[in-house]
Structures are given as structure tokens and as C-alpha cells.
Amino acid sequence: MRTYRIATIPGDGIGKEVVPAGRRVLEALAAQHRDFRFEFENFAWGGDYYREHGVMMPADGLDALHGMDAILFGSAGDPQIADHITLWGLRLKICQGFDQYANVRPTRILPGIDAPLKRCTPADLDWVIVRENSEGEYAGVGGRAHQGHPIEVATDVSIMTRAGVERILRFAFRLAQSRPRKLLTVVTKSNAQRHAMVMWDEIAAQIALEFPDVSWDKELVDAATARMVNRPASLDTLVATNLHADILSDLAAALAGSLGIAPTANLDPERRYPSMFEPIHGSAFDIMGKGLANPVGTFWSVVMMLEHLGETEAARKVMTAIEAVTANRALHTRDLGGEATTEEVTAAVCARVGG
């Protein structure tokens, strides 16, 4: 029997509700399979840990996670703690510490969900956004001087390396190659950012030569937002920098119906370290503890985790259960215009997975 060691990090806010829900789905799945099982270890890191210890996670936290097969993450963010502390102290510390350089965010309109785009069918909006996840605008290079004075200055420097750009573009071309349409859009801003983004464009053209069967085009990031709204069927796989893809993927999730349904995989494609899977929504403290959180984004993240672990049939089973539940509008949470609770959606998915 295959045993997978899964680290669960609920983090903050509704992460404490949706990650346990994701674990329940995995447990329901394992109960129906004799060839694999899961061993879970929970790590109570986040805002509460910060208030007690002054850090979001312990200094040796990466060592505790290193032997895991995958990480299921909830959210980072606390209204009492500055956002840059919660993000850099937990999520980015894990992503960068484990060189999870490929952030993959699939987006499509699930059955039963009323997406906001007019004249858009589910077949028109079926995208995967690949986000460079290790450098770029979130490299962490910069600083502040003369704080509080009229001459105060602050800098954040975007860092792009040839190695980093090559590997994320090659990953995106491979992913596009694996999809039926074999279509990739490289998002850029080289009209205004005339150094790093020009290098990005040049490397894209070079990597494209390795994938003659992939059709690709280039789109400025501002034009890409309009294209996502006006011509969704013209897109399939997109690749963008850390900041650009962060923004575009939230737009994509909203166009598909809700941020509450959208998943993310933070991948180390070389599998040197564990990869991390999470919903893209935030900690949503305004609905914390009310049973209103949509767990579908976490469940879809579980699907991506299972695919990464090689359990493709199990992944399909969970995805089929998700689609059956979203097709039932009585099981839509508030973000989708319904009144269902986190518990009701979780129980329905578990019942289908375990049936």
C-alpha cells in the first residue's frame, strides 16, 4: 500500500475551516481505496503563532516539512498583522524555501455556476495560468530609507534571471503542449519595462523553437485583461510574471464565478521538495467561523495534489464529485449566490467520493 505523508497548514481565517474539509475528502477517498492511504501532520502556523512567538512559522519549519509528500495550505492573512509579514513569513517562505517556482492555476466554469460573462459558454473559458513563483516582482529586493521624513524613499526591485525565466517558460510550453489546443499566450509588458520584460520576450521566442507543435502569441498584460473578458475563447494556457499572473488569475477566477472555487498548485517540477496546494482565496476574516466559506477551491486543490502524486484515477473521482455538487444549486455557498454552508458542501462531496 502506498502511503502519502501530507502536511496540513490551515493558516489564518477561513483556512482553518477549508483545510480540515479538504482532509475529510482525502480521508473519504482513502477509505474506498486499498492501494493508498494518507498520513496527516498538522502545523498550526500563522497569525496566532505569530502573536505567541513573533514569527509566522518556526525557523526550522522547512525542515519539518521537507520529508512530506505534499502540503495542503489554507490562507495567510490577519487583520491585526501587516500583510507583508503574514505573506513573507509563511506562504512565500515555503514557496521560495522549496523552490516551488511554477504556480499553476486552472480556471473553468464548473457545472451549475452562473459566471458573470455574457455570451460565454463553459467551453469558451477553460484556461490554465502559469505564474512564475520564485522571483520577478516578488523577489523581495529593495528597501526603505529616511522613514517619516519628506525625503523618504522606498524601492521594490523586480529581479528576473535567465535561468528563472527559461525554466518557467519551458514549463508553460510543456503544459500547453499537453493540452488539446496546444496554445500558449505569453504575457508581457515590454513596451514599458524595457529591460527585464524585453529579456522575457526574447527568451520566449527562443524556448518556442523547442516546441514547434505549440502555437503561441504575445500579449501585453493590460491588453490580456481585456482579452480575458472580450475574447475568452481565444485563450487556453497563459504564462506571466509573478505579479502579472497573480492579478490575472484572480480576474480569471472571478470570471469563472468566484474566487472561492479556484485552486492553486505551487510546484517544484523537479520534485526535490514537497509541492504545496491551496485555494486562491484569502483568509476572509469577515466570514470566519460562520460556516459560509466555499470549500470547493480547496477540494479542487486536492485534485491537483492527487494528480501530482500520480493518483490520476482518484483525482478524477474527486473532480467528478465536485462537479456533481456544484451542478446542484441548492449546494451553492453565498459567494455563488446560494445559502449552503461549508459543512453541507463538504458532506456532499465526501458522500460522492466515498460512494
Rank of each mutant, 00 (worst) to 15 (best):
R174H: 10
T333K: 05
T161S: 15
A240W: 00
A293G: 09
T155P: 05
G54P: 06
S283V: 09
H66R: 15
A30S: 12
R334Q: 15
I6M: 11
M228N: 11
R24W: 07
N328C: 11
V130G: 08
L92A: 14
L169P: 09
N266V: 01
M319T: 11
V239A: 05
S75L: 01
R119D: 15
A7D: 06
Y101R: 07
E52K: 13
L65G: 07
A21H: 11
R334Y: 14
I280A: 13
K218I: 10
E344R: 08
T121V: 03
T161F: 08
E311M: 10
T312K: 15
R23W: 00
I280V: 15
E311L: 14
V157T: 15
M305Y: 01
I287T: 13
K317N: 14
I71G: 03
I109K: 11
R162P: 01
I9F: 07
I94A: 09
L259W: 09
Y4K: 09
A315N: 12
R227H: 07
V128N: 09
M199P: 02
A76Q: 06
A253P: 01
G257H: 03
A324F: 06
K16Y: 04
L72W: 01
A7R: 02
H33S: 14
L235Q: 02
G97R: 12
T155W: 00
R271F: 01
P20Q: 04
E311A: 13
R162F: 00
A245W: 00
D250K: 00
A44N: 14
L125N: 09
I9K: 11
V198M: 05
L309G: 06
V130K: 04
N328K: 12
A204Y: 10
R329N: 08
C120T: 15
E135R: 08
L255F: 01
I247K: 00
F211R: 01
H332Q: 10
K290N: 12
Q32M: 13
L248G: 03
M160A: 10
T161W: 04
D246L: 00
R167F: 02
R91G: 07
E202N: 14
G97S: 12
T341I: 00
R170H: 05
V325G: 12
A314P: 09
H332F: 00
L336V: 03
A196G: 07
Q193M: 08
D83H: 11
K189I: 00
R24E: 15
P116A: 06
A176R: 03
R329A: 04
A145D: 08
M276V: 12
N103R: 02
R34L: 08
A205K: 13
G260C: 11
R231E: 13
L26N: 08
S215R: 13
I81D: 12
P10D: 11
D268M: 05
F285S: 08
D156V: 08
M288R: 15
V153Y: 02
D250F: 00
T107R: 07
D156P: 01
M68L: 05
I168P: 01
A245V: 00
G74L: 05
A145S: 08
I85D: 14
G354M: 09
R37D: 12
L209E: 14
D114I: 15
P232I: 00
A204F: 04
Q100T: 11
E166M: 07
E210K: 03
N42H: 10
T298Y: 10
V302C: 14
R334A: 15
L29G: 14
G47L: 04
